[in-house]
Amino acid sequence: MRYKFIDHSADIAVEVSANTIENLFKISCSAWRKVVLDNINLFSIEEKEINLEAQSIEELLVRFLNELNYYLYSDHWLFNSILSLSIINEKKIFQLKAKVAGEPLDNNIHRLKEEIKAVTYHHLKIVKKDNLFTTIIVFDI
């Protein structure tokens, strides 16, 4: 289970792989956090519930990450950890239920290093091979 950044001339691209789809989502969140914030200990002092639906698993991933983006730039709230996450596929609708934790953004403590305008759908495809789920996510910077 890991992520690694790959070269992209204008934006930031990250390759994520994990043994389950849930873990792929969790690691993608870690990659998102790595892009926006310098290494710092965050605290999980506030919780938020996220409920999303999408017609494809890729769209669900984009929407989930964009949700973290929205919390950061609109609510000034920083995601730190995932407390629980489940994904089900019912009648071709992918549903995500998650409980995430983090803390309010404090510009005196937290140093944001990059603004992700949005998580894109560019060439987004989640592939399963040899029991490993892999995808490449492009963040628009």
Partner: peptide, 22 residues
């Protein structure tokens, strides 16, 4: 982002088959 969310799901409805979801 709001509008892309809607449009990625209307490609079938309009019979579009584009090489990139974006």
């Amino acid at each position: 982002d709001d509008n892309l969310q809607i449009l990625v799901n209307t490609q079938k409805k309009y019979g579009f088959n584009l090489p990139d979801k974006q």
